[in-house]
């Protein structure tokens, strides 16, 4: 049986290990950055409109806020209804250079008790589901991004 890795959304992140990055776009005319990527038009109302070029986002930021999901979210979130629900943590992260806040799941094992507002976190590759779309001949791992504390506190 083969196993393929499929990003949960195409073009939002790329790279392996230390080179893993979220991908946004930047307007060539006004330098506005967009995540999720904006490929059609620059949304700055004062911009005449430029080319939107792919740009990696800062890999590190600081916790703006955090919470968790104690109950199973509805579809299209992928989860196995046969298994007991395992809560996961969500972190909103402020990126200094981009001056924006980006939401993501926390890396596995990171609970709300491990976090505080202002703490430094970094983006790491993550797995949303191991067996999404599994067939008899192929297994698909659905990949995503996660935020993980770097150990630098607030």
């Amino acid at each position: 049986m083969s196993r393929t890795r499929t990003p949960v959304v195409t073009g939002w992140f790329a790279g392996e290990g230390d080179n893993f990055r979220l991908l946004g776009t930047r307007c060539s005319a006004c330098a506005s950055v967009f995540f999720p990527r904006e490929d059609g038009f620059c949304r700055n109302p004062g911009c005449p409109g430029g080319d939107l070029d792919e740009v990696p986002l800062s890999p590190r930021g600081r916790v703006w806020s955090y919470t968790d999901s104690r109950y199973r979210p509805p579809a299209p979130y992928v989860s196995d209804p046969e298994l007991p629900w395992q809560p996961y943590t969500l972190i909103a992260v402020e990126l200094e250079a981009e001056r924006m806040v980006v939401l993501g799941q926390a890396a596995p094992g990171v609970s709300v008790a491990d976090l505080e507002v202002g703490m430094e976190v970094e983006v790491v590759p993550g797995v949303l589901d191991e067996d999404a779309g599994t067939t008899r001949t192929a297994r698909t791992t659905l990949t995503t991004w996660c935020w993980r504390p770097t150990g630098v506190s607030a």
């Binding site: 955090y66 999901s69 979210p73 299209p76 979130y77 939401l103």
Partner: peptide, 30 residues
């Protein structure tokens, strides 16, 4: 994939209460 409301459930499982939780925690911290 072009609907932000679909995407937040698909990618993050972010229900409405999780956003309320983020705002509440932010108020506690700030």
């Amino acid at each position: 994939h072009d609907d932000p409301d679909w995407l937040r459930f698909r990618v993050l499982g972010a229900t409405n209460p999780t956003y309320f939780g983020l705002y509440a925690r932010r108020r506690m911290a700030v």
